[in-house]
Computed example of a mutant assay.
Amino acid sequence: MKKVSLLLICLILLMAGCSSKEGGGQSKEDEQKYKEDILAYNTFLTNTMDETNVLLNQYNTAIDTMYMENMNANQFGLIVKELIPKSTQIIKSVEKQDYFHNNIYRFHKDYLVYLNSQHQLFLDSMEMANREKVDKSKLRKRYIEIKDSQTTLLNSWGTDL
């Protein structure tokens, strides 16, 4: 994730520099403020994405353990129960985050959709665990879809700036 962040920062700075030469309408102060805002959002994105990855890794480990039959539905439910408040907190922090520049709006909205999809996976998993009917295959498939959407989301960061 750290390499991705460094690459994204370089891309953003390069794009910001190119756009200022083309437009010619921004003052140096506006350009500097824009760069600072993008870098601040990138730091925020890196930190929250790292937090979500921790949750997803714990979730994936729990699913793997269920496949190995070393964990039952109740034990799985206890793990997921710990993930839900953490996921809720991440979503709240992202909802409160200013996205500084209009070009970030679409990405920020997509980021919230991604986070809510992940959260819904945890909620659905908890419901299955409560009923003691955990569909490991279905949950594993949704986990993979969420990780795929994470990759797509991260690859889109910076393309519209």
Rank of each mutant, 00 (worst) to 15 (best):
I84E: 04
S137Y: 11
H119V: 04
Y59S: 02
N130M: 11
I9G: 14
I79P: 00
L45Y: 01
I91L: 05
K141M: 04
T46G: 12
T52F: 07
T46C: 07
Q58W: 06
N47H: 13
K33R: 15
M68N: 09
D30A: 06
K109V: 06
L8R: 09
Q150E: 06
Y114D: 01
E51A: 11
G25P: 03
D37K: 13
Y41C: 02
I146Y: 02
Y67V: 05
K133W: 10
N57S: 07
Q32N: 09
Y34H: 00
Y41F: 13
S27G: 05
E95V: 08
A73D: 03
Y143T: 14
H108K: 08
E82W: 06
L13P: 01
Q118L: 14
A129T: 01
N47L: 12
F100Y: 13
T151V: 02
R142Y: 05
F100I: 05
L13S: 14
T159L: 03
C10D: 11
L161M: 15
I84Q: 02
L121I: 04
Q58H: 03
L7H: 12
I146L: 04
L7S: 08
T65H: 03
S117P: 01
V94M: 10
I12W: 05
Q89V: 14
P85G: 06
V80S: 00
K138H: 15
M66Q: 01
D64E: 10
E29L: 10
I84F: 07
T65F: 07
H101N: 06
E145R: 13
V113L: 07
I63F: 00
N70G: 14
F122R: 01
R131F: 08
H119C: 00
G17T: 07
K33I: 07
T151R: 02
S156L: 10
K96F: 05
A16C: 13
L139V: 02
I84V: 09
L123H: 13
K28H: 10
S93R: 05
T151K: 12
F76S: 00
N155E: 11
K86R: 01
M66F: 11
D148G: 04
N72E: 03
Q118D: 07
G24H: 00
L115A: 00
L14S: 09
S19E: 04
R131L: 06
F100K: 10
E132S: 10
H108P: 05
S19N: 03
S20M: 11
S20T: 08
E22G: 09
S137T: 08
L45I: 01
D148S: 04
N102G: 14
L139W: 00
G17W: 04
D50V: 13
N74D: 03
F100Q: 08
V134L: 09
